[in-house]
Design a binder for these strands. Structure first.
Lengths: 157, 157
DNA sequence: CAAGATTGAGTGATCAATCTTC
DNA sequence: GAAGATTGATCACTCAATCTTG
């Protein structure tokens, strides 16, 4: 069939550039992770639901020494700017899940600290999230694949 | 040393809930991908630089039949809402990288189509991105690890 | 002057409501 | 009425500038 309109054409040599396997695989990685992530975000539709970002914050605080982290450390860990963290902790503070603690030895720093309510909520949500992960991720992978995945993450850290 | 203030406490049994290995690994996955992704975003600081979202869009359009996709298909593929895609294509149209094409057989649908300028830009950026990926990702992994990664992505699709 | 946190302005997303076409 | 795309309102982020403390 002849073409009625002239469309954008891509030559064979250009085709190989656009279809680079490395770009394809990485793109799939981004896509799969984004899709899984958003799946779990909407999965937490409990009465006391909170965004997945909050979950990540609370988890890191709960796992840290004294259940607290410097604002700047927290920002670095969750790949946000310090400005972003400032207002995120503001919101979590309003929700009663986090609070700020001053550092007596350096009055420039503020610690983000998870509250008792935050710990309670976290303990309630963790098993749900773990079950979701089991079903959506781990049940679909072999033990050796999980092992390799872990190794890959170590190398890319 | 005795404690001056009462801090949030986490018991050993609660500790095991919070430190679930499945949650940890998945969290690391999110983190590593987010970090890599933002690294490459700032890497494209060429004169005609564009955000990584645009790159992803252009790549998908260029690889598709007739270099076009329905707005809704595109939204689904890049995990955005249709509203988000509408304005994203608006911006790319303003930049001359994409355009809208009507569907003669169904006047409800609009196709997002990559322009010749878009293809040119994409062809310029792909080798740069591939080289970045090679250095930041593939040089750090063995061939078998990449193979397993691909298999994992297939299963999680 | 540097480090740490916050604030103001601007951007790009979501969600829900709307408009058009099937 | 349902499907597809757009629009309005809002939200959470970034970037750059600012304030405070070291």
């Amino acid at each position: 069939m002849w073409e009625t309109f002239v469309m954008t054409k891509i030559s064979p040599s250009q085709h190989s550039i656009i279809n680079d396997a490395r770009i394809t695989t990485f793109g799939r990685l981004i896509e799969v992770v984004a899709r899984l992530d958003s799946t779990f975000g909407s999965k937490l539709d409990e009465p006391e639901a909170f965004p997945k970002t909050w979950f990540e914050i609370m988890l890191r605080l709960a796992r840290s020494e004294n259940q607290q982290l410097k604002m700047s450390e927290l920002a670095e860990q969750v790949a946000l700017t310090t400005g972003g963290i400032t207002r995120l902790i503001d919101r979590m503070t309003t929700a009663g899940l986090a609070e700020r603690l001053a550092d007596p030895s350096d009055r420039r720093v503020q610690y983000a600290h998870i509250t008792q309510l935050g710990v309670d909520q976290l303990l309630k949500v963790c098993p749900i999230h773990a079950a979701d992960l089991q079903r959506e991720v781990y049940d679909r992978l072999s033990a050796s694949e999980v092992k390799v995945l872990d190794a890959i993450l170590d190398k890319l850290r």
